[in-house]
Computed example of a mutant assay.
Amino acid sequence: MDGLQFHPRSVFLPRAEALVVADLHVGRAAASDVAFPLGERRDLLARLRDLVAEADPATVIFAGDVLHRFDAVTERARKTVGALVDVCDEAGCAAVFVRGNHDTALDAVRDDVRDAYVVAEEPQVVVCHGHEEPDTDAERYVIGHDHPAITIEGQRRPCVLVAADAYRGADVVMLPAFSRVAAGVEINDTRGGDLQSPLFDRLDDARPVVYDEAAEEPLTFPPLGELRRHL
């Protein structure tokens, strides 16, 4: 899709010089009592630094579900969010926070959380979390929320879903979870109504894009309606 560059678990919008990541779920490792080899904070920060160094954005947009817990913000989660902002500050780019359904306590950490963010006006691109229908009209929506992943040759891989004219005539780009603790939702046999986001009501026309980190390039697959016959 024109105007998009794909990076690991993220997209870059070159016209707006904006890098978008979604579903960090800060605090999920502790809440789930899982053992994560690198440590949640260290892993998130290291991968964000790499992305910022590669894409050189003017803005980093955190597209919702920055936090995992609904009810409160732990001190550790607060420090992790602060460290994410520090990564942006050190790189000379602005950090923008968009509210997700998990982010009921994010206002206690940041006083500038938005429900949606207009990235560019020609064409109008809006970043929102995707858990509810947006109030802002757009020609393209960049969202998260459902954590899409696809299983190919027995290996589950996070993927971006790209669909033209998917919501009220607008294109929709759904990002995988930036968190590696959050499980991906397998889309191999998923139909549009199976996803939670109201911006995707059909999936057969959506193209999965998998970033091959070994080859350092994105792999764009046929639309799911065609691809399912080969999976």
Rank of each mutant, 00 (worst) to 15 (best):
L51Y: 03
V126D: 07
T80H: 12
D50V: 05
M174G: 04
E226W: 12
L195P: 01
M1Q: 15
V73M: 10
R168E: 13
E186F: 02
D56Q: 08
Y117R: 00
L231V: 09
D56E: 11
S10Y: 12
F221G: 03
D146Q: 02
V26I: 15
L44E: 01
A105Q: 07
F200R: 08
D71T: 14
L67R: 02
R191P: 06
A163I: 04
V21M: 06
A138T: 15
S179I: 11
G154L: 08
Y211W: 09
C93T: 04
V113Q: 05
R28S: 09
D171N: 11
V209K: 00
L203Y: 00
L219K: 13
H230A: 15
G154S: 09
A206M: 03
D194W: 06
S179G: 09
C93L: 03
A31C: 02
D43H: 13
D112K: 10
R228W: 03
L224V: 01
V126E: 06
H147C: 00
C128Y: 01
A206C: 10
G184V: 07
A105P: 14
P14Y: 03
V11R: 07
R42D: 14
E122M: 10
V81P: 02
V85A: 13
N188T: 00
P134Y: 03
V127H: 00
L195I: 05
D204W: 01
L175H: 08
A91P: 06
E17S: 14
G192N: 10
V185H: 07
L51K: 07
R180L: 08
V66P: 10
L203V: 01
P158Y: 03
R76G: 14
V85D: 08
T190P: 00
V160R: 05
